[in-house]
Amino acid sequence: MIILVRRVAVAGALGALGAALAACGTPGASGTPHAAARPAHSAPTTAASSKPPTLTPGPSGLTPVFKNGPRTQGKTVALTFDADMTADQGARAAAGEHFDNPQLIGALRELKVPATVFMTGRWADEYPQEARAIGRDPLFEVANHSYSHYAFTSDCYGLPTVSEDRMRSDVERAFAAFEKAGVPHVMPYFRFPGGCYDQRALRTLIPVGVTAVQWDVVSGDAFATDADAVAQQVLEGVRPGSVVVMHCTRSAAPTTERAVRTIVPELRKKGFRFVKVSELIQAASGGRR
């Protein structure tokens, strides 16, 4: 999910955003949320002793929404990266456009930064080896960003829209794509494409059993050309318990790796400790799993 709300200059990017937000899948796959019937996959479950932390359902049992961790339990911060590729971008990938960013992942490993990667199923289809490697690396955790990267509300940064009757299957299809790629231990977390949701979407996803994860710091890396400006925006916005939204797509966020190489040492100088989203959710839920 690519977010435009930021101070970094991206004049005219709103139209381009819709195109970039749609990228996800293998060349030749139908890649739409209206594809033929497929097995249903709800949020993965594990043994009770290792069950990932989640939030309790909201009012009327609605899918819970997490924005940031506690502000008073230490200087922790979660960097999150959206691995975006929309369902109709297979031809662009086949033509050489890069929706992955192995250099960024390499930088996170080099800097020893835990992170949460919100991955679309189409991205996992396109880059199964990378998806599998990220999922098997204990430094990272993988969570669901839908299959198609189509919006769950209307008027969401120009993204195509998933119909209400396809919302659940689009999320379940992403879990199936992760399983096919061999990604283990996928977290029961979901990030709405574009960050756009409403009560209808939260209600529709109740049976999937996920916690929706938003953020409180927008990096502004989408379509940015100034890595220093991206880094500055993050450094100015981070507070204890913050969730930072960034991107893991070279074509749509080419400066993210450079920004991260500035952000990480500066936040560490300020006493911040990097954690995965699951640690913040556990702290927010009072340590319950």
Rank of each mutant, 00 (worst) to 15 (best):
V8W: 02
L14V: 13
A16N: 04
L17S: 13
G18M: 06
A20H: 10
A23E: 05
C24E: 07
P33L: 07
S42A: 14
P44I: 02
P64F: 04
N68V: 08
G69C: 07
T72C: 09
A78E: 10
A78M: 01
L79W: 05
A83Y: 01
D84L: 05
A93L: 13
A93Q: 14
H98W: 08
H98F: 11
A107F: 08
L111V: 01
K112D: 15
F118L: 06
M119H: 01
T120D: 00
R122F: 06
R122E: 07
E126V: 00
E130N: 01
A131S: 14
A133C: 06
F140Y: 10
A151S: 13
F152V: 02
T153Q: 09
T153W: 04
Y157L: 11
R168T: 08
S169N: 06
A177S: 15
K180I: 02
G182W: 01
G182C: 04
P184Q: 03
H185P: 00
V186D: 04
F190L: 10
F190D: 09
P193C: 03
G194R: 09
Q199G: 15
L202T: 10
R203N: 11
T204K: 15
D221K: 15
F223Q: 13
F223H: 13
A224H: 03
Q233L: 10
V234I: 14
E236D: 15
P240C: 02
P240I: 00
S242F: 03
S242R: 08
V244F: 06
A259Y: 09
V260Q: 01
R261W: 09
I263W: 10
E266Q: 12
E266M: 00
R268I: 06
F274D: 04
F274M: 09
V277S: 04
A283I: 00
A284L: 07
R288T: 11
